[in-house]
Design a protein around this nucleic acid. Sequence first.
DNA 1: CGAGGCATGTAAGTTGTTACATGATTAG
DNA 2: CTAATCATGTAACAACTTACATGCCTCG
Lengths: 176, 176
Amino acid sequence: MRVGTLGHALLGLLADHPRTGYALLKHFEQSLGYAWPASHSQIYPELAKLREAGLIREGASLPRGGRPYELTKAGHEEVRRWLRETEPSHTVRNEASLRLFFLWLLEPDEAQAYLRDEARRARHVLAELEAIAAEPDPDSPKTRAYGIALELGLRTWRARLEWAEWAVTEICRAPG
Amino acid sequence: MRVGTLGHALLGLLADHPRTGYALLKHFEQSLGYAWPASHSQIYPELAKLREAGLIREGASLPRGGRPYELTKAGHEEVRRWLRETEPSHTVRNEASLRLFFLWLLEPDEAQAYLRDEARRARHVLAELEAIAAEPDPDSPKTRAYGIALELGLRTWRARLEWAEWAVTEICRAPG
DNA sequence: CGAGGCATGTAAGTTGTTACATGATTAG
DNA sequence: CTAATCATGTAACAACTTACATGCCTCG
């Protein structure tokens, strides 16, 4: 079996402690999803594949049909191999940014409205990230790594907000 | 036919002036690709679909087998409809950022090396964008829109570089 | 007892990646 | 002449989205 990015992300989360598919899903929604979104319809089949490949195993089932998975030794080795031996992909795909190249096809006021919406969106995401940053957590290698990831989110969305506020005035600036 | 993001991007580029598939590909590599990468194996079939849908039409063929496409009236309407009436997707997918959440699975020196590489990458992309920004172009709605897109790239990669330089020291900071 | 959150799955379709495959033209 | 760039396509596969589908438990 060939493990992809989602598979490695699941292994990485399970490296911390066993979790159910649902708990993994919630983790994506609350933190990883800012960098790599995943839906339940992708997570459950992927867990089944990782189990067949012997990288995770099922633990004792929980109350409401919840079935926790834990990492096997092979799974632990695989996630470390991924981090150490494979090149990270730097491709970025962002439809909202792509649209900027076509703003000149709209009337100036429509283009400006788009940029104002971009500012609004940035403010919204930034507020979410600041709420996460406000939660205190003890210092450990794991929380340190999460803090570094969070700080990247804060800085890039802050930059995006400042850019959007600049762009709103730039788009209607007098020619020259 | 249902037109997706790639299709709309192609229509948007052709709204400026007719181009061959190859010219569109080069445009993706040099500018749009920073926000939405596309390969020739995706572009050529997509152009064929847009033509069948009557959104673009083929012009007279050029010297080396090049076949330029131009926008039809329906194509022009479709790209404007896309910009005005559909919600932009804000999903972001970035493997390099995802890996940050798993840095604690590596030895401290390996994690630091990863962050140093992130800084190097940011410096590289920033240099590319600054080279593009250095090229002078006349003021027009189109160049204004491109300038706004470019400025976003400059600011976000600048933020990412500063973040990476901070993170390199943060990851090896004394606990507490 | 109903709404909402917990919990898991499948199916169909779209999109994107990697590899295979070919041929023309031009600059050195 | 040969390497690079121009130029276009297909095929197989992997990944992702959207919709369909089900059932349990708890709080009000």
